[in-house]
Design a protein around this nucleic acid. Structure first.
Lengths: 123, 123
DNA sequence: ATAATATATGAATACATGTTCATATGAAAG
DNA sequence: CTTTCATATGAACATGTATTCATATATTAT
């Protein structure tokens, strides 16, 4: 018996283990979906070692695309693609000077986020 | 003439735009490759909205797998797979109590990193 | 033992993503 | 205007990854 609710409990346990009020509080605390996607999109930018290396380079100095490519030993195209990702995430900004385009960090959040990541790795 | 160095400048511009000492400083400041990979691996964990949602749930309370699955409206298997990723990154810890396994945040870095991400998005 | 339940896991699939290659754009010089 | 150089971009390819499905493991109860 009691099989009538088999469908809606297909993927959940038979009873809730935490107190119902906790469950309600947890659900209420969840941010909107849009914000969650924006957050994961932002962290996805940091989830690539090439982009991390570019950010580290820009920690030291603003630099043009081909200099970054040379320092990192990669093609201009690859760097340019990644700089676009970094710029659309507003982590870097660009400034044109004749034929060359200089990139620089957009703000201080980049350093803070990376430093927190380092602290976590160091344990 | 001067075509003999064409190969080594294949993907770089004809001259360096930043001062040579800056270039040397930038190269010296680059962390070791291992660390860069560890960093990007860590941020890759945050680069998925499901994992972010799990972390948000654990901000409020420790919780068992199937309760998390129910709160987030996902299957137990999907949550379990993601919890494994979160645990191997040492972002969550688990505690067994009979048949159920409770997950909780491992340390405070999670909150700090996510909060910094939020600040950046808010601009 | 066997059954029931919570969680973990391996394989498969569908989708996302980083790099390369070729080429286009934009700016300065001849 | 044409050429040259720095950068940007689209398509293609290879690799990575999140979810699903089926099943295995672990713990408790019967």
């Amino acid at each position: 018996m009691w099989k009538d609710h088999a469908e809606e409990t297909l993927d959940t346990c038979d009873f809730i283990h935490v107190h119902p009020d906790v469950l309600a509080r947890v659900k209420a605390a969840l941010p909107e979906e849009d914000l969650l996607y924006d957050l994961s999109d932002l962290f996805r930018i940091f989830a690539d070692s090439t982009r991390i290396r570019i950010l580290y380079v820009l920690f030291e100095s603003e630099m043009c695309v081909c200099d970054i490519a040379q320092v990192l030993g990669m093609t201009q195209s690859a760097i340019s693609h990644q700089l676009r990702a970094l710029k659309s995430a507003k982590l870097v900004k660009s400034r044109r000077e004749g034929k060359t385009v200089f990139y620089a960090l957009a703000d201080g959040h980049v350093r803070t986020i990376i430093n927190q990541g380092l602290e976590h790795i160091a344990e």
